[in-house]
């Protein structure tokens, strides 16, 4: 009893109990499934029958699989185009919202809204309707005199851009992060620049941008990872069509796992994705010393 009392009053006990809901969930719903998925990636597994260990077979199939390369190409294109665009957009809007007026609060909320709802299925369906042949976009173009009956989602060249625009539109969370770090840049620097006679453009490139690089870096890494993991847009709006031109890696993984029941292969694809994301993140970190300003102010 005394021992129990002693154990209960130890500092770490409270900590353990407080973190338990998280740790249990993390172990049960992250670590265990990850372990199982790692095992499946070395198996021939179709969900219905028990897995059969096949060693590296899945990975060998993958390197001969044309669709695998295609989906990597699509995903890279999507991530490398949509993420920088989104960041540029976020930064621009953040700079505009820096000035405090009566409406600033409203605008901030309004621009943040797409990040909350933009990833949802409802918005994906809305997007699909908007870009339909008889959708709002074409109707608007017709209203200004351009007779457009173009099928945005049906063309192999434009379909991916519909998804990219949707992704760029969800710039809100990056915007908020930019906004808060813009506010931390000391006014004294700008005042000094004013005294030296610097104009707006050189102030932006000489003061604002360098001091923002740590934030840009953070946003870039986070958004890049998100970009590679994008699923809903492609799954709901295009299903990878037309001609696999919007087949995101994650959608291909889903198809293999749950449509063709090559679940072992799907698991292998997932682990390759993890390796790719890890590698890209490492590369980004390696470039950090060349362009990210980490000195004090």
């Amino acid at each position: 009893m005394n021992l129990f009392k002693k154990a209960m009053s130890r500092e770490s006990t409270a900590g353990i109990i407080f973190t338990l809901p998280f740790t249990v969930g993390f172990l049960l719903f992250m670590i265990v499934p990850m372990g199982i998925s790692l095992y499946y990636s070395f198996c021939k597994y179709d969900i219905l029958s028990p897995p059969v260990f096949t060693g590296l077979e899945n990975f060998r199939t993958m390197f001969a699989d044309e669709t695998f390369y295609k989906s990597i190409k699509v995903t890279f294109f999507f991530a490398f185009v949509s993420v920088p665009l989104r960041l540029i957009f976020a930064l621009l809007v953040a700079m505009l919202l820096l000035k405090t007026t009566k409406m600033t609060g409203f605008y901030r909320a309004a621009y943040y809204l797409p990040s909350i709802i933009g990833g949802s299925v409802a918005v994906a369906i809305l997007w699909k309707r908007m870009f339909a042949t008889d959708g709002v976009i074409n109707k608007l173009l017709q209203a200004v005199g351009i007779d457009c009956k173009f099928s945005w989602l049906g063309d192999t060249k434009t379909a991916i851009w519909v998804l990219i625009i949707l992704a760029v539109w969800q710039f809100g969370s990056s915007m908020l992060i930019f906004l808060s770090s813009l506010k931390q840049i000391p006014m004294s620097l700008y005042e000094a620049a004013n005294v030296d006679g610097a104009n707006g453009i050189s102030k932006f490139f000489k003061i604002t941008l360098p001091l923002l690089t740590p934030t840009i870096f953070f946003n870039l890494v986070m958004q890049m990872i998100n970009g590679f993991l994008a699923f809903t847009q492609s799954y709901i709006i295009t299903q990878g069509k037309p001609m696999n031109s919007t087949l995101f890696y994650t959608v291909y993984m889903y198809q293999q796992s749950f449509e063709f029941y090559n679940t072992g292969y799907g698991a292998a694809l997932a682990w390759v994705m993890l390796a790719i994301i890890g590698l890209i993140t490492l590369l980004l970190f390696a470039t950090k010393k060349f362009w990210v300003y980490e000195g004090g102010l």
């Binding site: 699909k128 339909a132 042949t133 008889d134 099928s151 989602l153 049906g154 295009t238 069509k241 037309p242």
Partner: peptide
């Protein structure tokens, strides 16, 4: 029907089948 038209529909859905869904003869 142009293949692009189908990109806007859900394949296999009766409600969205081009037989009954659509507003112009070309779709």
């Amino acid at each position: 029907i142009e293949p692009g038209v189908f990109a806007e529909l859900t394949p296999g859905s009766i409600e969205q089948d081009p037989l009954v869904y659509g507003s112009s003869p070309e779709t």
